[in-house]
Amino acid sequence: MRWDITEKALHSEFLRTVEQRSGENVSSCYQCGKCSGGCPVVADIELTPNRIIRMVQLGLEGNVLRSETVWCCAACGTCNGRCPIGIDIVHIMDVLREMALERRVVPPPGAAEVLMFYRSFLDCVKEFGRLNEIALMGSYNINSWHLFCNVMKAPWFIFKSKITIAPHKIKQIDRLKRAFERIEELERKK
């Protein structure tokens, strides 16, 4: 893979913004590669975590925010545990996802579903205060057009009484909705 590292990218604000928002010293990474050595999803993604970090250092904002990697990170934290200089890579991935959302970057194939899942999850929490797995699966399947995702597993869910049909709703749901709205408002101002 080849990227053009331009003077403009090198002097862009991208690295500084990521460092500031995450509180992590991204510049100090010296590419030992231990994060990628332990990363469980490297087989499924194009750009390994150490590459993402290097690309942040080089100011390759568009390539980083458009990558599948930032969305397919399972946040398991193996990279964090193994980084010899203690960079919180999971937190950096969180910041990169937030930046991708703020800049309205369209997630690549294979990543859009992950975002859709997170959105369906949070919609359910906003509505009930708790997650209802049936509501989550239903809304995810509809939103993602994967209408039959896990339908083959449905008999298990029913016969093993793994799901409750009635959603649990918290008492102070109005306060929670206001909390969500305040956060959404803050996001819009960014």
Partner: peptide, 8 residues
């Protein structure tokens, strides 16, 4: 993960 992955 849904929350920490999308909104701190």
């Amino acid at each position: 993960t849904a929350a920490h992955a999308t909104n701190h």
